[in-house]
Amino acid sequence: TNFTTRQLTELEKEFHFNKYLSRARRVEIAATLELNETQVKIWFQNRRMKQKK
């Protein structure tokens, strides 16, 4: 998935405060950013892996 700059900014901002999202928060973010819930979930999984390295 190619994310827009706005989407990436918002996802990174959320990640800064929360490494893990509740389902409710994931649904909320997905709706706000016009993404589906799975895209948000996978982005967070990938971002956590990236941070571990």
Rank of each mutant, 00 (worst) to 15 (best):
A30D: 00
T4G: 05
A24H: 08
N2Q: 09
N46M: 10
T9N: 13
E34T: 05
L35M: 09
N2H: 12
T32W: 09
A30V: 01
A30K: 01
F15M: 01
Q45R: 08
Y20G: 07
E28I: 04
V40H: 03
Y20F: 12
N2Y: 07
E28F: 09
T1D: 08
E28L: 07
L11Y: 00
Q39W: 03
R26D: 04
R6F: 14
V27F: 11
K53P: 11
T38S: 11
R23Y: 12
T5I: 12
K52N: 14
E14H: 09
L8R: 05
R26W: 03
K50F: 09
L33P: 02
N18I: 02
R26V: 15
T9R: 13
L33V: 03
F15S: 03
E34A: 13
L11R: 02
H16L: 14
W43D: 02
L11F: 03
E37L: 03
T38M: 12
N18Y: 05
E37P: 08
E28M: 09
N18L: 04
F3A: 00
Y20Q: 11
Q51V: 14
W43E: 04
Q51D: 13
N46Y: 09
L11N: 01
Q45M: 09
A30S: 05
E12Y: 01
K52G: 15
I29S: 02
R26N: 08
T4Y: 00
R6I: 10
E37Q: 07
R25Y: 02
H16T: 15
K19H: 13
F3E: 04
T38N: 12
F15H: 07
F44Y: 05
A30H: 01
F17L: 14
V40S: 06
L35C: 10
R26T: 15
E28G: 07
K52R: 12
I29G: 01
R25H: 05
K50D: 13
E10S: 08
Q39Y: 07
E37K: 01
K19M: 11
L33Y: 06
N46E: 15
L35P: 01
L8E: 14
F17N: 15
Q39C: 09
R25F: 02
F17M: 11
W43L: 01
R48W: 10
T38P: 01
F3M: 09
Q39S: 09
R47S: 06
T5G: 11
E12H: 00
R48N: 08
R48C: 10
T32I: 07
N36R: 08
H16P: 02
A30E: 01
Q39I: 04
K13D: 06
N18V: 01
I29C: 10
Q7H: 04
Y20C: 14
E37D: 05
Q51C: 11
T1A: 04
Q45N: 10
R47N: 00
L8M: 13
W43K: 00
I29Y: 02
V27N: 10
N2L: 06
E10C: 14
F44S: 03
R26G: 12
K53S: 15
N18T: 07
N36I: 03
A24G: 09
F17V: 14
A24S: 12
W43P: 00
R48L: 15
F44I: 00
T38G: 10
R23T: 13
Q7E: 03
L33A: 06
E10T: 11
T4L: 04
F15A: 05
Q45S: 07
F15K: 01
Q51P: 08
N46T: 10
R6H: 15
T4D: 05
L35S: 01
K13Y: 04
E10L: 12
N18A: 04
T38D: 15
N46F: 01
K50C: 09
E14D: 04
F3I: 08
R48A: 14
K52C: 12
T4N: 06
W43I: 05
F3T: 04
E12W: 04
S22H: 00
L35Q: 00
K19C: 13
W43C: 06
S22L: 02
K53L: 08
K53M: 07
E34P: 00
F15D: 00
Q39N: 02
R47F: 04
H16A: 14
N46W: 10
S22C: 06
T4E: 02
L8P: 03
A24Y: 06
N46L: 08
E10M: 11
T32S: 13
T38E: 14
T32F: 11
E12Q: 01
K13L: 04
F44V: 02
N18C: 12
T32H: 09
F15R: 03
T9P: 06
V40R: 03
R47C: 00
V27E: 14
M49L: 11
K53Y: 09
M49C: 07
R48Q: 10
A31N: 11
L11P: 00
R47P: 10
E10F: 09
K41C: 12
K41S: 15
K19S: 14
K52Y: 14
R47V: 00
S22F: 02
K53N: 11
R26E: 10
R26C: 14
R26Q: 15
K19I: 02
T1K: 08
T32A: 13
A31C: 11
T4K: 03
A24I: 06
Y20I: 08
L33T: 06
A24L: 08
I42F: 05
V27Y: 11
F44A: 01
T32C: 10
A24C: 11
M49N: 08
T38A: 12
F44G: 02
K50T: 12
Q39T: 12
L8W: 05
Q7A: 06
Q45I: 06
T5K: 14
N2G: 11
R23F: 10
A30W: 01
K13R: 13
N2F: 01
M49Q: 13
E14L: 08
Q45A: 11
V40M: 01
L33G: 05
K52Q: 11
N36D: 14
A30T: 01
A31D: 09
A24R: 12
T1W: 07
L33H: 00
L33E: 03
R6T: 13
T4W: 02
F15L: 05
T32P: 03
K53R: 05
Q51T: 08
K53H: 11
N46C: 10
I29W: 02
F3R: 00
R23I: 09
E34G: 15
L8G: 04
F3C: 04
K52E: 08
N36Y: 05
L33Q: 03
N18K: 13
E12L: 05
L35D: 00
F15V: 03
R23M: 09
I29K: 01
E14T: 04
N18R: 08
F44Q: 02
Q51I: 12
F17S: 14
L11A: 01
L21S: 06
H16W: 02
E37M: 01
K50A: 13
R47L: 01
L8C: 06
A31P: 03
E14W: 05
R23N: 09
E37T: 07
H16S: 13
A31M: 08
S22K: 06
I29R: 03
L35K: 00
N2D: 09
T1I: 11
R25N: 04
T5Q: 13
L21D: 10
Q7C: 00
M49F: 06
T38R: 10
R47T: 04
E34Q: 10
E28V: 07
Q45C: 02
T5R: 09
K13V: 03
K50W: 11
K41F: 07
F15I: 00
T5M: 11
N2C: 09
N2K: 13
F3Y: 08
Y20P: 14
F44T: 07
L11S: 08
Q51R: 04
L11K: 00
L33R: 03
A30Y: 04
R23S: 13
N46D: 11
